[in-house]
Computed example of a mutant assay.
Amino acid sequence: MKTFFTRTASALVFVAVMLGGILWTPFTFFLLFFLVNFFAIQEYFKLIRLIDKDYNEVSAWHRYGVLVASCAIVMAFTGEAFVTTLASLGFLGWWTAVIFLLVLPMGEILLGKDFSLKNIGYSALGLLYISVSFGLLVDLRLSSSMITFIGHTTGGQPGWLIPLLLICFIWINDTMAYIIGSLIGRTPFFPSISPKKTTEGSVGGMILCVAVAGIFGHYWGQQWLDLQHWLALAGIAAIFGTAGDLLESKLKRMAGVKDSGNIMPGHGGFLDRFDSLLLATPFAWIYVHSFMM
């Protein structure tokens, strides 16, 4: 019972913080996912250190340099949206990222105990997997006002709509997959990675996610997006969200841990909460910029 109340309380706080950050202003959206990236990238490094002990040997310069570069990458995706007295946040982020990414290998050679391209590769994959993905999500939020809705551009369209839809579709897919899997699931989906997932649950969750999006989009949502966009975004969230969950489960299994972190009582770490979004976001970004701009 205590565990139930702990999980419920932390879930309510999580939802409140997420909705506040997403809906309040563009800057709170950026700040929310800037912080999520900051903690998620560190959880990734922890998993890699457990998977490959050689990663423990990276220098402090490498460890903190990658963290700074990670934060700078997310900043770079803000472009000209937030302007300080000196320069835009995007400009500062871009040049900070470039400088650290160029100087980082040199520092590793000079300061590391043993220079290892493998360790640099682990760090580069983390930046691509986490920081670039969150940067693309921030870009979706800031560029949504340029999307053509129902044949015309509407500057008043809420920029948070598409990021929030992605998150909602992922939640619907996960919930439906759990319910269907519990009721009729018999065939293991990827037993070596996630033994509890079933093919019936995963496929059923995807189908119902797209169906819910289609029904809502048809009856109530066409004032914001054409029906085909509701269906496409739901399909992207369901398919690549499921793949993202499996990818992070594979990393945890290789590391021999149940959760990526314990920042959220009863719910694991930041990677556990955003693993689906990390893989769905790049494909949603490609779709939006290819078919909706």
Rank of each mutant, 00 (worst) to 15 (best):
F115H: 08
A232D: 12
S131I: 03
L142K: 14
E108I: 01
I51G: 13
K113D: 06
T175Q: 00
F274N: 08
Y129M: 15
W95V: 09
I51R: 10
G205R: 08
V74I: 04
L166V: 10
E200V: 07
Y122W: 11
K53D: 10
I263V: 13
D226F: 00
D275H: 03
G126T: 01
I286P: 00
S249K: 00
E108S: 13
I167L: 11
A72M: 09
A16P: 06
L35P: 02
A238T: 12
I184K: 01
L140T: 12
V13G: 03
S192H: 04
I73N: 08
N262G: 13
F291P: 08
H289D: 08
H289G: 09
V66A: 15
L31I: 08
A97K: 04
S290Y: 02
I184A: 07
M75H: 00
L86M: 14
P158R: 11
G65A: 04
W61E: 06
K252F: 00
C71V: 15
L111A: 12
T8Y: 05
T78Y: 02
V103G: 06
G126P: 07
R63T: 15
W94M: 15
L67P: 00
K197R: 08
T242D: 03
Y64K: 05
G235T: 10
L86H: 03
L12V: 12
F77M: 08
D245P: 02
K53A: 11
L231V: 10
Y122H: 10
L183H: 00
K46M: 14
E248L: 14
M206Q: 06
E43W: 05
Y44T: 10
P282Q: 11
L183D: 00
I109P: 03
Y122C: 07
L278N: 04
L125I: 15
F189Q: 06
G235D: 13
K250F: 06
H267P: 06
A255L: 04
C71W: 02
G256L: 01
